[in-house]
Nucleic acid binder design. Structure first.
Length: 485
RNA sequence: GCGGUCAUAGUAUAGCCUGGUUAGUAUUCGGGGUUUCCAACCCUGUGACGCGGGUUCGAAUCCCGCUGACCGCACCA
């Protein structure tokens, strides 16, 4: 199924839709989750907690979205999270200053150079607009962070462009008060904000978006000293080497030095196990090792976890070895101590991060789960039962003869424990189809036989098969079928 | 941000060129009937011209601006 089909489903079934859509000044890059979307997102996050946080004994925090200017001076975002741009005075086209200079003169100016250096080269080498041969105005910086003004004086602060900065600045307190030991994973789910030049494709490039970030603090001298590596050493991961994807076990990847150490391999291993359980088709996924110039300004080694969708390959998780970039930056700027003890050794921990885009992940789950069942003339969203916004539909076959009342009675019994959708009206087939489209894995139907022997039919979404079960066993059966793995 | 295409009910569309209709159709949705398990059928109801300005006696329709969407370019920590 294609992007357009997912989009249509999202609009019609309440997964997501544009923010502020009744107003004409609504800006691009902002989307709301509807009821079905919230259900899916909450369950996805619960799976993330189970498969990554609890599995690895990580701890979780929830930081502010607005952070002070110093944080981003120390993190490098004020200087580096910005592009030098020039604009043609004639045709108004905008270009990256460093790119246009390289193209025209082969002169490489680092992105971080002063703006006057770009202007100087443009003037000296007489660089003109490639489209219309017009002159460029002076070079400007476009920073992708949203600035906010705090209090009546409008003190300078920023909406965070990534959630992890609060983890870094909170690290000294957390390590002390939570009795931390390296390696220690600290995680956070929350919103981040980036003033994208061209947001596009709904959930795939947003200006306000959810991240689930994990920062694992470690002793750089002990990256192969990891007992739990045995848990995933035989887990297969697809890894792209020299433009070719090879499937190998984590152990093979480490032995062949494609992945630098057991520590990194462990987290790539548990990450792919998580995504498989989330219902992403991992046959269509890869870890792509980034080349030098593709990496973020803070990353030493980086693997992107990417999946294939109908819009092309899509980056879901950036796995960056950030070394001590962040902690030393904050230590210098804040004059606080960020070193900790690891056994008898005092170390400034290094950081390996798994920076996950939740919105993109949810989109991919939808696209990989949506299918057209032509034989039965229906659209089915085959979500994992534990991720479905609705666990079970409760339907009366017909409204009369006391069936509606009996149906209500059963609904009341299970509605607190499960996400249940009660429906009395319309043809039964239509009601089943509707549930198929929001991904409800099960439906129970109350019919005349129910009144006689207290049994109901249980319908399976994917096969459309039905079993007769006792109402007294309903809770036990649903509990098993909708449980997290 | 640039260029191209486009914008009508929840969704998909007709009408626009050649200005005047009760803005049509399909599907969805609500109510009722029928039907004893897979989008059937019958009755009935709700629901739309993105926003702002201009031309005109009159604008969904023509013109301008804005906003958004899609595609390509550039960008993507």
């Amino acid at each position: 199924m294609k992007y357009d089909d997912v989009m249509k489903l999202a609009l019609e079934r309440g997964f997501y839709f544009p923010s502020c859509e009744v107003y004409s000044d609504a800006q691009a890059g902002f989307w709301e989750y509807g009821p079905a979307g919230v259900g899916l997102k909450n369950k996805f996050i619960e799976l993330w907690r189970r498969e990554l946080i609890r599995r690895d004994k990580m701890i979780e925090v929830d930081g502010s979205q607005i952070m002070s200017k110093s944080v981003f001076e120390a993190s490098g975002h004020l200087a580096s999270f910005a592009d030098p741009i020039v604009r043609c005075t004639k045709c108004k086209s905008t270009y990256r200053a460093d790119k246009i200079i390289v193209d025209a003169t082969k002169t490489v100016i680092p992105e971080s150079a002063g703006l006057d250096e770009f202007d100087k080269v443009i003037t000296e080498k007489n660089v003109k607009c490639p489209k219309c041969n017009g002159d460029f105005g002076s070079t400007k910086k476009f920073n992708m962070m949203f600035q906010v003004g705090i209090g009546p004086e409008g003190e300078e602060a920023y909406l965070r462009p990534e959630t992890c900065q609060s983890i870094f600045v909170d690290f000294p307190r957390l390590f002390k008060t939570m009795r931390g030991k390296l390696p220690l994973g600290i995680a956070q789910i929350g919103k981040s904000f980036r003033n994208e030049i061209a947001p596009r494709q709904s959930l795939l490039r947003l200006r306000e978006f959810y991240q689930a970030e994990i920062e694992v603090f470690c002793n750089p001298a002990r990256l192969n000293d990891l007992d739990k590596f045995s848990e995933i050493e035989n887990t297969k991961i697809p890894i792209q080497v020299d433009n070719e994807v090879k499937i190998m076990t984590c152990k093979e990847a480490v032995d062949s030095k494609i992945i630098p150490n057991k520590f990194v391999a462990y987290y790539l291993g548990i990450l792919i196990e998580f995504y498989e359980k989330a219902g992403i088709d991992i046959q269509k996924s890869r870890f792509r090792k980034l080349e030098e110039k593709e990496k973020a300004f803070y990353a030493e080694v980086a693997f992107d976890f990417e999946v294939e969708t109908t819009t092309g390959w899509l980056e879901l998780v950036a796995c960056n070895y950030r070394a001590d970039y962040d902690l030393s930056g904050h230590a210098t700027k804040s004059k606080e101590k960020f070193e900790v003890m690891d056994n008898d050794e005092k170390v400034l921990p290094h950081v390996f991060e798994l920076s996950m885009g939740i919105d993109r992940s949810l989109y991919t789950i939808l696209e990989h789960s949506l299918r057209e069942d032509k034989e039965n003339d229906r659209t089915v969203l085959s979500l994992k039962p534990y991720l479905s916004p609705i666990h079970v539909g409760v339907l009366s076959l017909v409204k009369k003869d006391g069936l509606a009342e009996k149906t209500d009675e059963i609904y009341l019994k299970i509605k607190r424990k499960y996400d249940v959708f009660l429906d009395h009206s319309g043809a039964i087939g239509r009601r089943y189809r509707r549930l198929d489209e929001v991904g409800a894995p099960y439906a129970i139907t109350i019919d005349h036989q129910t009144l006689q022997d207290d049994t109901v039919t249980l319908r399976m979404r994917d096969s459309m098969e039905q079993n007769r079960i006792k109402v007294s066993e309903l809770d036990e059966i649903l509990s098993k079928k909708t449980a997290f793995p």
